[in-house]
Simulated scan of single mutants.
Amino acid sequence: MLRKPHPLKATLRRAIAPALFVAVLTFFGAYAFLGPNGVLALGDYRRQIVQRERVYATLDQRRAMLKNRVALLDPRHANPDMVDELVRKELNVAHPDEVIVPLQ
């Protein structure tokens, strides 16, 4: 005598695979939207890029200024004013009648 399976059990057995598929799909969909690399994090990444570009622009200006100062101190053709300024600054040497005006 064969027993006929209960209709609820048969329905649940058939629904397990699609339910797992929907659960996995929902998980990955939510992760793509809310995760650390998701759609909501895109605005934060863009804000960080703008902020870092400002920092890089400032650093580029500073690098250009330092590159100019290094070029002025090249031993082959040093700028006498720059050399005099650095020597007086480093050695703290000034004549009594001189007035030192810091530029920065």
Rank of each mutant, 00 (worst) to 15 (best):
residue 1 M to P: 12
residue 3 R to N: 11
residue 3 R to S: 13
residue 3 R to A: 12
residue 4 K to N: 13
residue 4 K to W: 13
residue 4 K to H: 11
residue 5 P to F: 03
residue 5 P to I: 11
residue 5 P to D: 03
residue 6 H to Y: 01
residue 7 P to I: 02
residue 7 P to Q: 01
residue 8 L to E: 09
residue 8 L to C: 01
residue 10 A to R: 12
residue 10 A to M: 10
residue 11 T to L: 14
residue 12 L to H: 00
residue 12 L to M: 05
residue 14 R to H: 05
residue 14 R to S: 08
residue 16 I to T: 04
residue 17 A to Y: 00
residue 18 P to Q: 02
residue 18 P to D: 01
residue 18 P to C: 05
residue 18 P to W: 02
residue 19 A to C: 00
residue 20 L to T: 03
residue 21 F to W: 01
residue 21 F to H: 08
residue 21 F to K: 12
residue 22 V to P: 01
residue 22 V to F: 07
residue 22 V to T: 02
residue 24 V to F: 05
residue 25 L to M: 09
residue 25 L to N: 08
residue 26 T to W: 07
residue 26 T to N: 06
residue 29 G to C: 04
residue 29 G to S: 06
residue 29 G to H: 02
residue 30 A to W: 15
residue 31 Y to R: 12
residue 32 A to D: 04
residue 33 F to N: 15
residue 34 L to F: 15
residue 35 G to I: 10
residue 37 N to S: 06
residue 37 N to E: 14
residue 38 G to S: 04
residue 38 G to H: 06
residue 39 V to P: 01
residue 40 L to W: 09
residue 40 L to K: 04
residue 42 L to A: 15
residue 43 G to Y: 04
residue 44 D to Y: 08
residue 46 R to V: 10
residue 47 R to L: 13
residue 48 Q to M: 07
residue 48 Q to W: 13
residue 48 Q to D: 08
residue 48 Q to H: 07
residue 49 I to N: 09
residue 49 I to M: 14
residue 50 V to W: 00
residue 51 Q to I: 03
residue 51 Q to G: 00
residue 52 R to C: 00
residue 52 R to D: 08
residue 53 E to V: 00
residue 53 E to L: 00
residue 54 R to T: 03
residue 54 R to P: 00
residue 56 Y to D: 09
residue 56 Y to R: 01
residue 56 Y to K: 03
residue 57 A to D: 09
residue 57 A to C: 02
residue 57 A to K: 11
residue 58 T to D: 08
residue 58 T to L: 12
residue 59 L to V: 09
residue 59 L to W: 03
residue 60 D to F: 04
residue 60 D to G: 05
residue 61 Q to F: 00
residue 62 R to T: 14
residue 62 R to P: 00
residue 62 R to H: 07
residue 62 R to K: 12
residue 63 R to T: 13
residue 64 A to T: 13
residue 65 M to D: 15
residue 66 L to Q: 11
residue 67 K to Y: 08
residue 68 N to T: 15
residue 68 N to M: 14
residue 70 V to R: 04
residue 71 A to M: 10
residue 71 A to L: 14
residue 72 L to Q: 14
residue 73 L to S: 12
residue 73 L to E: 03
residue 74 D to F: 08
residue 76 R to M: 10
residue 76 R to C: 00
residue 76 R to T: 11
residue 76 R to P: 00
residue 78 A to D: 02
residue 78 A to I: 07
residue 80 P to M: 06
residue 81 D to C: 01
residue 81 D to G: 13
residue 81 D to M: 00
residue 82 M to K: 06
residue 82 M to D: 02
residue 82 M to R: 02
residue 83 V to K: 07
residue 84 D to I: 02
residue 84 D to T: 12
residue 84 D to E: 12
residue 85 E to S: 10
residue 86 L to T: 03
residue 87 V to G: 00
residue 87 V to K: 06
residue 88 R to T: 02
residue 88 R to S: 12
residue 89 K to R: 13
residue 90 E to Q: 12
residue 90 E to R: 13
residue 90 E to M: 10
residue 90 E to C: 07
residue 90 E to L: 15
residue 90 E to A: 15
residue 91 L to S: 10
residue 92 N to H: 09
residue 92 N to L: 08
residue 92 N to I: 05
residue 93 V to C: 06
residue 93 V to R: 11
residue 93 V to F: 13
residue 95 H to D: 10
residue 96 P to Q: 07
residue 99 V to M: 11
residue 99 V to F: 09
residue 100 I to S: 11
residue 101 V to H: 11
residue 102 P to T: 03
residue 102 P to S: 08
residue 102 P to I: 01
residue 104 Q to S: 15
